[in-house]
Design a protein around this nucleic acid. Structure first.
Length: 880
RNA sequence: GCGGACGUGGCGAAACUGGUAGACGCAAGGGACUUAAAAUCCCUCGGGCUCAUCCCCAUGCGGGUUCGAUUCCCGCCGUCCGCACCA
């Protein structure tokens, strides 16, 4: 006897155990099947999963289960992005060792993920903080070093003198450290870099092949790489005032420009405050030094800088125009010039660059138009508030007059290449990239040690391969500023591997983005002691067929992983250049916010609702105080609008939670978490179970042979079934999980209606077969989303095996095609009727039928037909 | 400032390459069952006119292309996201 209700609390652990015992989700079992690799971005082990994880992993699981049912050997692994700052912060706060804290968190989160019933191959689990993992990362680093892909150079960082640490731009607020409040210093540190710029063009061109990536992400990467073609031009300094510059200062200023055509519109030169010449000048000019200092204190973020006022400092120096020895341009130091891009210096052409125009207006430097748009009289051309950045022909430019922009660029480049200045060509064509090398040095404990030993005599020496991994020492102390590795003499002081002399280890560890740049490859062969992964396993599994994660990783993580794939290939480790063939970026889980009268954030669990005069009112559960309903925002601890997946799974079950995060919103858009929505998902899970029971009562036995013929009722039911299979399959393949679920619900509605039409329990054999087919299809269609209840129903329907290993239902194309179709009939583009005709009815038949309709005749008002449009199987339009 | 995306009922949304706008769900209202409640089931549900049908209006706003536009083009308005002044 079946219970009244589906008891998820017993069923879910039961099926999880059965899946586990039967190794249903182990990859690599079936050599004959095509492979499919589905990967979700692995989590940082913060200690608890959040709803974003639930959504991310539910989506990946639908794909994994669907592909398995479609006959693929599916790799669907899970691991932990386990290095990072929170572990060190926790160590300082609670005196737990980062390793203990991390592994405890991993255990807790693993249990949570397992309670979701994800079809993961847990035998491949990895953690990046495991020496067995980072050993290979250190080897990769050394291989990259040997291949010339590693560099060591100075770079400027934000140094917090109190915390003795380096801060990101966003951690510097008004020139002070976010935690210590100390004034931040700009410091030059020697750091390790991965030479990602060696692959600039390759990374850019590779984007064209990634046709299963969102266009948005490809565009972001393109802009980030930022290839631009231009000319590098040297401007000779006019004799400077006595004593303004040291004797060894450069005698010219090199600028990079993509608009060499506008050289005759130049009005000034602007240098970055960090330009070498600006620094030399500042040493002898206190006012300039103060100005440069002020520039460095402003916000470092682009949006801040771009909305900030453009400011400059006139150095008093002048340069000579390259095409006119008598033409002088003033040299400014300006706050909007970045040392990191190009040469850290520009020439300003106010008429054709908005920023230059803004700057020129402020300092009265003028603006001469040199490009005239086609069809405009050059004499009428006046530069007002908007610079003209478009195409046209050159004017006011001597020998360039009349040329197009492209021709003028070419002409200028050629002339400058053939002009000598101080023994070199004055200009040369250059391709510039925004992309900069990837600095990976971090002054932290909880990261992968950089396997280098510094020797006074030999310089930086790689740790011999046989000595890898360089393991982090366990006995470290936190609570003091600075890096614990730096204070660990026994670990730090070692003999030089080359000369045997006294030496010290590199105490910087790697950026955690390094850890996540190759983990997808490790999953192919996660326990290999000798290599990141064997050639054979990489050949088998790469690339990842479908990668799923947050759009916040659209640039850095994905670009770094693409770089690693190339670097691994080029250092003989194998694999493919593009690690992720398909990419999907999912939306966030968001929730309403609530605030008490005192302004404190209130958690959703503490709020109840009742209808009010203007919609809902929210009241505090504890004492009924009204709380304000705020905007819907990303779930965050600070706003207390989080919902704990554990609690949801505990009270509704994993299937309900999974169903909810997949329903309603398209997966790339945000989904609003609501209690009502969860209830709706819960109701459907229950309804599904009841429906399966009712269908089981009337259906033919599992595996029954089809009868020879089907009467109308059975035929209609079969058609509904096969149409549902076709559209659910299509929606899953398009990753439209919300539409797939809507279609399944519609199918469930159709089945409920069909059941209602059956009068006797001993239905005809053809109908019994149709119900069996429908029930089996329904359960298999929903199984990727709600796998536990699906197993329960599958078993109740009399199947011996697991739905997790059942094949996806096959569509019978004959049943999907419709013989009679209904066609809307429009008159002058407005719907006035509907006709039912054979799907292959000819135009004459359709026309005759359409012109018989009352509504159509009425709308035609007796006018003759001017045009008759028939879009086969779509619509009819009568134009009168 | 630059770049990108998005604006459809009370709400989340659907509508594949231009072809019946609002599937599916949430909320709401009404009803059945019940001693009552929960659960479940049935009905209504964009706006206007209407008993109802017909009809009219409606996919942010204003134009355009088309037999036909939520979909394509131009111009506005609004919201969200990313950013390193891209020289």
């Amino acid at each position: 006897m079946r219970a009244e209700r589906y008891a998820f609390a017993e069923a879910e652990p039961k099926w999880q155990k059965i899946w586990d015992e039967n190794q249903v989700f182990a990859a690599g079992g079936a050599a004959g099947k095509p492979k499919y690799y589905v990967l979700e971005m692995f989590p940082y082990p913060s200690g608890r999963i959040h709803m974003g994880h639930v959504r991310n992993y539910a989506m990946g699981d639908v794909i994994a289960r669907y592909m398995r049912a479609k006959g693929h050997d599916v790799l669907h692994p899970m691991g932990w992005d386990a290095f990072g700052l929170p572990a060190e912060n926790a160590a300082m706060g609670s005196k737990t060792h980062p390793a203990d804290w991390t592994f405890a968190n991993i255990a807790a989160m693993r249990a949570q993920l397992q309670s979701m019933g994800l079809s993961l191959d847990w035998s491949r689990e990895i953690a990046t903080c495991d020496p067995a993992y980072y050993k290979h990362q250190q080897k990769l680093f050394l291989d990259f070093l040997r291949a010339g892909l590693v560099d060591r150079k100075q770079s400027r960082v934000n140094w917090d003198p109190v915390d003795q640490t380096v801060l990101a731009n966003e951690q510097v607020i008004d020139g002070r450290g976010w935690r210590s409040g100390a004034l931040i210093e700009q410091r030059e540190l020697t750091q390790w870099f991965l030479r990602i710029t060696k692959y600039s063009d390759d990374l850019l061109n590779g984007l064209d092949q990634l046709d299963r990536w969102p266009e948005k992400v490809r565009l972001m990467q393109r802009n980030w790489i930022g290839r631009s073609e231009g000319v590098s031009v040297r401007f000779q300094l006019a004799a400077p005032a006595e004593g303004a510059l040291p004797a060894d200062a450069a005698r010219d200023i090199e600028v990079f420009t993509t608009r060499a055509d506008t050289l005759f519109g130049a009005k000034f030169i602007a240098l970055s405050p960090d330009h070498p010449l600006a620094r030399q000048l500042a040493e002898r000019n206190l006012a300039l030094a103060a100005f440069a200092q002020e520039c460095r204190h402003g916000g470092a973020a682009a949006a801040e800088i771009e909305t900030a006022e453009k400011k400059g400092f006139d150095t008093g120096l002048e340069v000579v125009h390259p095409f006119d020895p008598d033409w002088r341009l003033p040299v400014y130091v300006a706050n909007f010039i970045l040392m990191e891009y190009g040469t850290g210096a520009i020439f300003g052409c106010p008429a054709h660059d908005q920023r230059d125009l803004d700057f020129s207006r402020r300092y009265g430097l003028g603006a001469t138009p040199v490009v005239c748009p086609d069809g405009v009289d050059p004499l009428s051309l006046v530069v007002e508030d908007a610079a003209f950045e478009g195409e046209g022909r050159l004017i006011n430019s001597r020998f360039l007059d009349g040329l197009t922009v492209a021709e003028a660029k070419e002409d200028v480049a050629r002339r400058l290449e053939h002009t000598e200045l101080a023994g070199r060509p004055q200009g040369e064509r250059k391709i510039n990239y925004k992309l900069r090398d990837w600095g990976i040095s971090r002054q932290r404990y909880w990261g992968c040690p950089i396997p280098i030993i510094h020797c006074e005599a030999c310089g930086p020496v790689p740790v011999p391969d046989g000595d890898l991994p360089v393991e982090l020492p366990a006995d470290v102390e936190f609570g003091q500023p600075g890096n614990p590795l730096d204070r660990h003499p026994a670990w730090k002081h070692v003999a030089c591997p080359k000369c045997g002399g006294a030496a010290r280890r590199e105490t910087d560890t790697m950026d955690t983005f390094v850890d996540s740049s190759w983990y997808y490859a490790r999953f192919a062969d996660p326990h290999n002691p000798d290599a990141p992964a064997s050639r054979a396993t990489l050949d088998r599994w790469l690339p990842v067929d479908q990668y799923i994660g947050g759009v916040e990783h659209a640039i850095l993580h994905l670009l770094y992983a693409r770089f690693f794939a190339r670097a691994m290939r080029d250092t003989g480790h194998g694999g493919v250049a593009e690690p992720f063939a398909g990419l999907f970026t999912q939306g966030m889980v968001v929730h309403e916010t609530y605030r008490s009268p005192s302004g404190d954030w209130v958690a959703p669990a503490d709020v109840r609702f009742e209808p009010g005069e203007t919609g809902r009112r929210a009241l505090l559960r504890a004492d009924g105080t009204e709380v304000a309903i705020g905007p819907i925002e990303k779930m965050s601890k600070s706003k207390r609008n989080t919902v704990d997946p554990d609690e949801i799974i505990g009270s509704y079950g994993a299937d309900t939670a999974r169903l909810f995060v997949l329903s309603d919103s398209p997966p790339d858009r945000d989904v609003i978490w609501s209690e009502e929505g969860v209830q709706g998902a819960w109701r459907f899970v229950q309804r599904l179970w009841r429906l399966a029971g009712e269908l089981g009562n009337i259906a033919a036995p599992a595996g029954a042979a089809p009868p020879a013929t089907f009467k109308d009722a059975a035929l209609e039911l079969r058609k509904a079934t096969h149409r549902a299979i076709a559209s659910v399959s299509e929606n899953i393949e398009r990753l439209r999980f919300n539409s797939a679920i809507a279609r399944i619900r519609e199918f469930a509605n159709e089945l409920t209606a069909a059941l209602g039409d059956v009068e006797a329990p001993d239905a005809d054999a053809d109908l019994a077969f149709a119900f069996r087919e429908a029930a089996d299809a329904l359960i298999r269609l929903i199984a990727p989303m709600t796998p536990h209840v699906a197993e329960e129903c599958w078993s109740d329907l009399g199947h011996a095996g697991l739905v997790a290993t059942a094949a996806w239902p096959q569509v019978d194309a004959m049943l999907v095609a419709r013989e009679m179709i209904s066609l809307p009939v429009q008159v002058n583009g407005k719907k006035r009727g509907e006709i039912v005709v054979a799907h292959d009815a000819g135009e004459e038949a359709v026309r005759a039928e359409a012109l018989k309709q009352d509504g159509v005749l009425r709308a035609m008002e007796g006018k003759p037909v001017k045009k008759f449009i028939l879009v086969p199987k779509r619509i009819v339009n009568v134009v009168v």
